[in-house]
Simulated scan of single mutants.
Amino acid sequence: MVFRGLALLALVMGPGLVAAQERGPVTNLPLPRYVSLKASEANVRRGPSLTHRIDWVFKHRGMPLRVTAEYGHWRRVQDGDGAGGWVHYTLLSGARTALVRAQMLDMRARPHADSMVVARLEQGVVARLEECGQTWCAVSADGYHGWTPKSALWGVGPDETLE
């Protein structure tokens, strides 16, 4: 069954428990999902075609974005502030990144609050996601590698894990 161009896939989670997982009609990948900006510049359009007006331009390679819809070669995306529009799929990458939301975020040697601080990341830094558990994510930024609380990042779902 298709609703507004999005297919619903019912996933059986156990005896009698069912959760609806939206899937993109083009890629069959989950919606919403996180991606990153592959290009150094990407026109963000009002609709899914070259004839639609450009509302603004994303200008930060690697910026995490959340895909909320698909239409042909176009993906509707949102940034960490909720601003969004349609971009061509060739401008996006499956490489996972995250945006630091905390004023100053300690990157730690291990996924524990008492672990040694290896670097401090300022708000707005884009870090590469390497792994995420329930509460901590392994990230890298500017040659530093370490662990940060997942709750201080935008670009990974609260219940999402990455290996």
Results as ranks from 00 to 15, higher is better:
Phe3Ala: 11
Ala7Lys: 13
Ala7Met: 10
Leu11Thr: 13
Ala19Phe: 11
Arg23Asp: 02
Arg23Gly: 03
Pro25Lys: 01
Val26Arg: 03
Val26Leu: 07
Val26Glu: 07
Leu29Glu: 15
Leu29Cys: 08
Leu31Arg: 03
Arg33Gly: 09
Ser36Thr: 07
Leu37Ile: 06
Leu37His: 04
Ser40Thr: 15
Arg46Ser: 10
Gly47Thr: 03
His52Gln: 12
Trp56His: 10
Arg61Pro: 11
Gly62Pro: 02
Gly62Arg: 04
Met63Ala: 14
Arg66Phe: 00
Thr68Ala: 10
Glu70Met: 14
Tyr71Gly: 00
Tyr71Trp: 10
Gly72Pro: 00
Arg75Trp: 00
Val77Gly: 04
Val77Met: 05
Asp79Met: 06
Asp79His: 11
Gly82Glu: 03
Gly85Glu: 04
Gly85Tyr: 03
His88Gly: 01
Tyr89Phe: 09
Thr90His: 07
Gly94Leu: 07
Gly94Ile: 06
Ala95Asp: 14
Arg96Thr: 08
Val100Glu: 01
Gln103Cys: 05
Gln103Asp: 15
Arg108Asp: 01
Arg110Cys: 03
Asp114Arg: 14
Ser115Lys: 04
Val117Thr: 13
Val118Asn: 04
Ala127Ser: 09
Trp136Val: 05
Ser140Gly: 09
Ala141Arg: 06
Ala141His: 12
Asp142Tyr: 08
Asp142Arg: 14
Asp142Phe: 10
His145Tyr: 05
His145Leu: 07
Trp147Gln: 05
Pro149Ile: 03
Pro149Glu: 00
Lys150Ala: 05
Ser151Met: 09
Ser151Glu: 12
Leu153Pro: 02
Leu153Thr: 05
Gly155Leu: 10
Pro158Glu: 08
Glu163Asn: 07
Glu163Gly: 05
